[in-house]
Design a protein around this nucleic acid. Sequence first.
DNA 1: GCAGATTCTTGACTTTTATCAAATTTCGCG
DNA 2: CGCGAAATTTGATAAAAGTCAAGAATCTGC
Lengths: 252, 252
Amino acid sequence: MLDVTKKYLTPVDREKIECRTCNVSHICIPHALTGSELENLDDICKAKRRIEPGDTLFHESEKQTRIHAVRTGSFKTYVTNSEGMEQITGFYLPGDIIGLDGLGGGICQSTAVAIETSTACEIPEAEFSRLCEHNSELNNSFMRILSKEILREQQHMMALGQMSAEARVAGFIINLSNRFRERGFSATEFNLNMSRHDIANYLALAAETLSRILSKFQDDGHIDVQRRNIKVLDMDELHCISNGKRCSRKSS
Amino acid sequence: MLDVTKKYLTPVDREKIECRTCNVSHICIPHALTGSELENLDDICKAKRRIEPGDTLFHESEKQTRIHAVRTGSFKTYVTNSEGMEQITGFYLPGDIIGLDGLGGGICQSTAVAIETSTACEIPEAEFSRLCEHNSELNNSFMRILSKEILREQQHMMALGQMSAEARVAGFIINLSNRFRERGFSATEFNLNMSRHDIANYLALAAETLSRILSKFQDDGHIDVQRRNIKVLDMDELHCISNGKRCSRKSS
DNA sequence: GCAGATTCTTGACTTTTATCAAATTTCGCG
DNA sequence: CGCGAAATTTGATAAAAGTCAAGAATCTGC
């Protein structure tokens, strides 16, 4: 068992969480790497920090010199406007990369906060860049990660701009389900580790509206949600709702 | 004068639009380059196409092997969902880079359409990558472009998720104003080359709502809008509205 | 320069979702 | 285990923005 009182993991702990033995490496940066290249990445992957719920991994306006990869747990990122309003821009699971808005010497405009006790790998951007120069496969793979992040945000704009509240919630559940499956977890039963308030903010809904919609989905038999545990009972129906249709009209 | 009947520019036309002599190069990829490096970029910058209003620069689901830079004119990009609904994800002015969601061998999920008669520079990604390997300054600068695109999308999520219709419209005008200024044009009088429908879609509003808000801004004396020409009369007030305040309460 | 098509604006009304308020459940911690 | 705080749910009402419909302005091609 890891000692949860230590802020930084000891070498012994560190041993356990090398990319080589990481069970989300197929999703993360190293998925294009083999053998010695993987060791090179492990070498520059410096502090692998433990972060408690509510603590920030990095904060807005910090100059970012590192790329962060979620190792365990989960994070949310948000941006704030001049009025202090927050918009959550994403939830990040193991294997996801955070902080891509501060690359190339820019100032990161977003803040990343741990949702649960989590660990993150920190990769210095400069050293990573050098590694990329000598490995076009790695470079390509990183470009893919970047472009996927842009794509993800575009899809979310579509959700916020064109989809109804119900469709957004259904889409959110489907998205999480898919991401848990990719990571080897159940696609039909999982935990919404984030608060209702955070989910609502991410989906640009009032928390009350989200709550009502989850209750409705439960009443209609599409899901079974107990606090933060959710069971998907009818994935097809969720897809229909997410697409703006109402396939089997169980309720008015 | 350019011959507008030709789809592809002739070598003579091409001469005129090298990065070296391009008046938006300070915003675009070459801003980190000098002398011979600029020539290298010009060498790989292949087809510099002329595109008529409504024509696509690239289409969703195409495998992207090129990076596109707006040279003249303007473009919109949009994504579609399974129901065929469209969400415009951005408007791109000269010097802006389009198609970053298809990097690293991915399939581009967005479509780019010319808003007016435009020209675009096409840079093969593979060759550009090689150039980056030998020029970390260029690589860094490209990373900055990518991270700025992610940032831009995050800001737009904030707008869609947290800001009122009026605040979004005010923010949109301010954003365009800033971008025109960066390009050496007037920040207070410019053309909204895109249709009201497109602006409304981008801002996730009904076209009628946008129209009403523009009329209100005009009645309140913040702007003077005649069809697609807009004059900003009170930029401070627009900033206030965009920030969700109402500084000088000219109307109810 | 005019007819038809398109785009934009305005008005009346509706719908969706937010807000406010209160009740209920759950959680953290002694 | 039980108390207080926090999170969530539910209900009633309000506000913001959407929809439908019609009219005005502008563009396009002949």
